[in-house]
Write a protein that binds this DNA or RNA. Structure first.
Lengths: 68, 68
DNA sequence: TATAAATGTAAAGTTTATTTTACTTTTTGT
DNA sequence: ACAAAAAGTAAAATAAACTTTACATTTATA
């Protein structure tokens, strides 16, 4: 799964810690997701959607591996 | 977290087993999500988004409990 | 260029998502 | 009404998300 978190976060000039606090997870979780180590829960994706004012589909996309 | 899976699935006249097969999870997972027992991963939410041709934000919504 | 802030990373632990098996209840079709 | 299909449920197991602590590296700034 791909994502624009790093870009969107830069757009809002937020640090990983800022974002983590805003969506209620640890800084490491944000970091891991940005590094593509794993994907978020849908609840977290929706919270990020709120913060960035972008749909989950705009923030996250399936890549080849995820398409079946 | 709330969702319209049951509705959307009805719209496409699919059974829980059909849907499960199409998105690559077990029938019980679809059932549990429809019953609100837990939320899906973002990967699964995106796959459901594909099947129903609806955005993740249209399919799933945060409720009071999830808003902080 | 030194220091602070931000980011990356890793291991061990907890919680939540998902599977499998199996059974019960409800709905649909004849 | 009966049989078959679909949906609901539950327990035990595994996998994935997330936390905490701790430290190393990179980037920004005085």
């Amino acid at each position: 799964m791909q994502n624009n978190l790093k870009m969107e976060r830069a757009r809002l000039k937020m640090t990983q810690a800022d974002l983590a606090a805003k969506v209620g997870v640890s800084r490491q979780t944000i970091n891991a997701i940005e590094q593509g180590k794993y994907g978020p829960s849908t609840i977290l994706a929706l919270r990020l959607s709120l913060v960035f004012d972008k749909s989950v589909n705009e923030l996250f996309a399936l890549d080849e591996d995820d398409l079946n």
